[in-house]
């Protein structure tokens, strides 16, 4: 479904601020699978997602979705294949437009003449029907401006909009991180439900170990632009939060192992 080969990206190359965000990442995502990407801050998780979505072009490597090489496609061209939900609840929707207007844009995404369809009664009914599944009472407020909704409600709607046309690939970039615990749990549950019902292929960046263990069927751990762990199948089934914490701990210990430690241990391991 998604195939990434030797993907590399260095920001500020050649300067003192040089950051090697992705170094020759290889990853294959199967159709209908739900993968969580976890890792410390700056490990390259979001960069990987952004590279897939086309926010920038990679220095090296190839990305293909559904056997089509999209490496050089522009961001908007990829939008036909890819749905996205961001961390910031305000990023995925237009605050000054009504809920219905926002959704209509999502419904027409990727079409040549996106806004020719007026918001007629039939469209609105179809809209209300699907918004009702969120169980937030928003189906009665379709004409309200998006800006009047809470972060949790906006994020739920963004999720619905991103998946309205059943994208080939759904990218979730810490989409529950900015929400209060209750809204986060609700959006997480909604995510699971939509992905399962529509059998979507999804990738989710998260810092929540709980979500990483409970929601997806595969967990990929990144560190310093590399994939360091890939839990899938049986391994994923027996994966628990303490296992993930242990892996983080192991990576950190390795990081803090410096020359002075090496000297010390050489003297003490007798």
């Amino acid at each position: 479904m998604l195939e990434i080969k030797g993907l590399s990206k260095t920001f500020f190359a050649g300067t003192v601020n040089e950051v090697r965000a992705l170094s020759a990442v290889d990853l294959q995502i199967e159709e209908g699978s739900f993968t969580a990407i976890i890792g410390t801050n700056g490990s390259g998780k979001s960069t990987l997602l952004n590279a897939i979505a086309g926010s920038f072009l990679p220095d090296q490597g190839r990305i293909s979705v559904a056997n089509e090489d999209i490496t050089s496609w522009s961001e908007f061209r990829r939008a036909v294949l890819i749905g996205r939900v961001f961390q910031n609840p305000f990023a995925g929707t237009a605050a000054d437009m009504s809920i219905a207007e926002n959704i209509v844009m999502a419904m027409r995404r990727g079409l040549k003449r996106p806004l020719t369809t007026a918001l007629n009664r039939k469209v609105k009914e179809e809209m209300a029907e699907r918004v009702r599944t969120l169980k937030m009472g928003l189906e009665d407020r379709l004409d309200n401006p998006m800006g009047t909704l809470s972060g949790g409600q906006r994020q739920a709607l963004t999720l619905l909009m991103a998946t309205w046309l059943k994208p080939k690939l759904l990218l979730l970039d810490e989409h529950t991180a900015a929400l209060d615990p209750k809204s986060a749990a609700k959006v997480a549950e909604l995510t699971r439900q939509i992905i399962a019902d529509d059998n979507l292929t999804a990738m989710m960046v998260t810092h929540s170990m709980q979500q990483a263990v409970e929601l997806p069927d595969r967990v990929v751990m990144m560190h310093k632009g590399n994939i360091v762990e890939d839990y899938r199948h049986e391994q994923k089934k027996r994966l628990r939060i303490p296992d993930l914490l242990e892996t983080f701990d192991r990576i950190q210990k390795r990081e803090l192992f410096d020359e002075t430690v090496a000297d010390l241990l050489k003297k003490q391991y007798i």
Binding site: R254, V261, A262
Partner: peptide, 23 residues
């Protein structure tokens, strides 16, 4: 560490492939 030979002797930081220190 008993698998260390003259050929793969860890120098400096390479020791962290062999030992995990609590830090």
């Amino acid at each position: 560490l008993t698998q260390v030979t003259d050929k793969n002797k860890p120098e400096g930081l390479a020791l962290r492939d062999w030992l995990s220190y609590s830090t």
